[in-house]
């Protein structure tokens, strides 16, 4: 991993000529074509585009859930485009904080246990896990709901638990995929204001959305169309 030792990386997230081609039998579908952009530390970037444009594919690549067919992907100075599944799992654990449209909380676990989950895979001791999880739940305004299970929480509350979970491992990038897609407008506004606060306190956010109102909160908007990037600031 020579790239990880390169002198001071220019950006936190660097994509260079990323191609992603899916093979469906004999048919090959080009989901992304020569996508290049850089996200710097403390950026707040929105990636938008109509459905089928390739924004989900892009989100999977940035989230290290998938690897590009060609091109280079660098996160926090480390080239991740050709890592094996175990190394990718480690990158996801340390560098990425996911926020999903469906919240994706484990229904059998309390809020605090859900938030602890990334730290379990990072091997953080129990006491520290618990403390960090509680601190973050308090920060998203759920200090009184530590022992509630997802079913006992509203959608907005569940998404706040998910944000606490995304933050708990102190990742380089918060990667949100349609974070307000399942929320009423009031809860959505709450979530977006939390994002803004996070950005002001130095966090780097990448939000994938098709909602123009959500995208409008970002400092930069990247638009994907037919697998190609059209940047408009």
């Amino acid at each position: 991993m020579a790239q990880s030792e390169q002198t001071h990386p220019p950006g936190l997230l660097v994509l260079k000529d990323i191609d992603k081609t899916y093979r469906l039998g004999n048919l090959s579908v080009e989901a992304l074509r020569r996508v290049s952009f850089t996200v710097f530390a403390n950026d707040y970037v929105a990636i938008t585009g109509p459905s089928g444009s390739g924004k989900s594919t892009l989100m999977h690549l940035i989230g290290c859930l998938d690897t590009p067919s060609s091109g280079e992907l660098i996160i926090a100075g480390q080239r991740v485009s050709d890592l094996d599944p175990n190394q990718l799992a480690e990158i996801r654990n340390r560098r990425i904080g996911f926020v999903f449209q469906q919240f994706n909380l484990l229904r059998t676990m309390t809020a605090v246990r859900n938030v602890e989950l990334p730290l379990i895979y990072a091997g953080v001791p129990k006491q520290e896990r618990r403390e960090r999880a509680i601190t973050l739940l308090e920060r998203v305004g759920l200090g009184n709901h530590l022992q509630h299970r997802p079913m006992e929480l509203s959608g907005g509350q569940q998404q706040r638990v998910a944000i606490a979970r995304a933050l708990v491992g102190d990742p380089s990038i918060i990667l949100a995929d349609e974070p307000t897609g399942n929320l009423d407008s009031h809860s959505a506004a709450e979530i977006l204001s939390i994002f803004e606060e996070l950005n002001q306190s130095g966090r780097t956010l990448v939000v994938i959305t098709h909602d123009a109102n959500v995208a409008a909160k970002a400092q930069r908007i990247l638009t994907i169309r037919d697998g190609q990037l059209q940047e408009a600031s």
Binding site: P85, N86, A89, R92, L106, L117, Y121
Partner: peptide, 15 residues
């Protein structure tokens, strides 16, 4: 879905 989530949060296949 739970497995997918755990993997996204950093679970290795061995986990």
């Amino acid at each position: 879905r739970e497995i997918g989530l755990r993997k996204a949060l950093g679970a290795k296949p061995s986990d």
